[in-house]
Design a protein around this nucleic acid. Structure first.
Lengths: 204, 204, 204, 204
DNA sequence: AATGAATGAGAATTCATTCAT
DNA sequence: TATGAATGAATTCTCATTCAT
């Protein structure tokens, strides 16, 4: 077998583990998604699972979190932001996060469960949010007139705040289903709230 | 067989179980707060725990929820609401909920964990929120000129929405600690958000 | 409360315990019919159950067995036995036992389960069968010409044997349902077998 | 963590589990033969037991039943059946079943106990009896003149019936010990009963 | 006599993890 | 690299039984 093929197999195995893990989280919750079950469902041996993830479950989440997902937004919309298209851009941004949450529902549930018994994960998460937000603001300032003139630190802090608020609401909506009747209502409310929050932060 | 004395105080035993359970939830999370640990810490036998809560942990939460806590607000502030004191009343309301969350942090963590593996609990929770909101609005309309003229159904729906949004944010703040630096900031933001949300709902 | 009334209540309580116990045995098997469940279903306290049956479950069966049921047949048919009505008498006898088994299915299941972990019960059962058979044969010999001339000891031994064979088959039929399509087939076969067995025993 | 050696012999482990389980059933009955005791006596960990038998005790019996035992008779005797050796053949057949019951007494006790709380096991058992009986009759008809001319379906039905009756009696004899003084008496009676039953079935 | 709170051993089962092959 | 047998602490829950009131 060539090295490439081996690598490809390795990737496939890891992907299978992620997939099965999140499927099990959705079906029966984070704590019942055991390593043994994952291995069985993924049709690999438990040894193989620990070979790829020596620390087991927490490592699955941590590495999935590291590679992924949570903090990757589409910048392009924001770069085009100006006075006239604020509403559209905000909606696109919120829709983006919402879509991400829906596609990764299991991940978010798992992550929030894991965080409760693994403080270092929360720590890592917070650092990650800062890091990504910084990069995000940097890039925005480089390319958009709209953001160039604003103070960077403040922009970053604002972005983190907004991002967390939106996440709090969207996560609640997805898991408890008691906030909005449908996604359009959510996007409408949250993007308005985004506007409100920006104004609120400016005043402070 | 044993020469342990048998304390025979039902209420005290149940209270001890609640106390120890929520203490353990705070210390190590819902899933690690096992029935055995609860019994051991509460210095009762595991049999006694199951004697009082035959369905174990989920029954502890469910019954605590049923008797309690979550949805009791101070009406008095609201009854005095008029055009000039909106801001103060909102702040008092939000402070109220925040205080409740802080005092019952373990309960909220436990409840959200339990809800993920017990749909009937979510259901019960939703029904409870509706019921309490209805009572709340009824009383407000009876005593306050401000609310008398508004449509009851709409008021209830709005109240539920606001209540859930506030909860989403406060819970996130309490558990993940990544939103506000201190409680005053939270109260300020959330009570402003409350005003924004009410206006938003009126427009719709 | 008069003594009579107390006594009547006591009887009623004991009857309730028997009834609930055998109901539970039928529903979930002997080993899952616990004393606590019996008390709860019978709406008495567990203390009361142990007050009436200090040794718990095994005493319930033992005393039910002692008072009852298993070894009470209708003699009248047998007393009329002669050459011409053998078949009818046998059928009546077998029907009798079958009816008893159906009415006391739970008792038989419980008894067979209990016997496996309580040898003294098996012993008591065997002694009881001998005792009852002896009484039965005595009475038959006193009143029926047909039996008067036969040797008592042999009659008793034969009766015990026949009784046990019939029980083995009927119990199997009732619990495993793989022998006969209906009760008539069983009664027909078993009463023929009874004839066969008597002839077999005479030859020996 | 532990420095125990890990013997890695699946077949041997499973055999040990079977052996210890049936030994315990004989010693203290099906319900007292707990999975923990089995593991302890077999000197394996409880985890190992559940690794091989994820459904615990009921799976031990079910799989033992599936691989085994109960319905394997010696055909050779039957193939030589003719008018003159009926009695000998029947005796051999009954002896065969008796020997099987004695060698597998624990299995039969366990099986009958398990059947009371696991209907699917009874179902499987019945199907198994039909299947084996069919194979048995097929083979007999191929090789023996005596059986060739008889209607297959009827032969099968008769065989099943006889097999069940014999089992009911032998099981009773083995467990309750109140039928026959010794095995010869049992074989004599049951093989005679077999002849009686065949005649009985022919008349019907 | 009746109640039911309390007991704790022990049963079934799960789980993360190790390690010989 | 991969396998899966093995581990045993930990978890949930049941049960027969005791005893203070």
């Amino acid at each position: 077998m060539s090295n490439k093929k081996k690598a490809r197999n390795k990737e496939a195995t890891i992907k299978k583990i992620y997939d099965v893990f999140f499927k099990l989280v959705l079906e029966e919750g984070f704590h019942k998604a055991s390593t043994n079950k994952i291995a069985k469902e993924a049709k690999i041996s438990i040894g193989t699972l620990y070979h790829h993830f020596p620390e087991g479950k927490k490592e699955i989440i941590r590495r999935y979190f590291e590679n992924s997902v949570e903090t990757s937004f589409d910048l392009e919309e924001f770069k085009k932001l100006n006075m006239s298209n604020i509403s559209t851009v905000f909606r696109a941004f919120v829709s983006n996060i919402l879509r991400n949450h829906k596609e990764n529902k299991a991940y978010y549930i798992a992550f929030r469960s894991a965080i409760l018994s693994d403080e270092s994960l929360a720590q890592a998460h917070n650092e990650r949010v800062v890091e990504i937000s910084t990069g995000f603001v940097n890039e925005l300032q480089e390319t958009s007139e709209f953001f160039k003139s604003r103070e960077k630190k403040r922009l970053i802090r604002s972005f983190i705040f907004i991002y967390n608020i939106i996440n709090a609401i969207i996560y609640h909506h997805i898991v408890f289903m008691d906030l909005f009747q449908n996604d359009e209502d959510l996007v409408d409310y949250v993007s308005n709230l985004l506007g409100f929050t920006i104004k609120y932060l400016q005043k402070k």
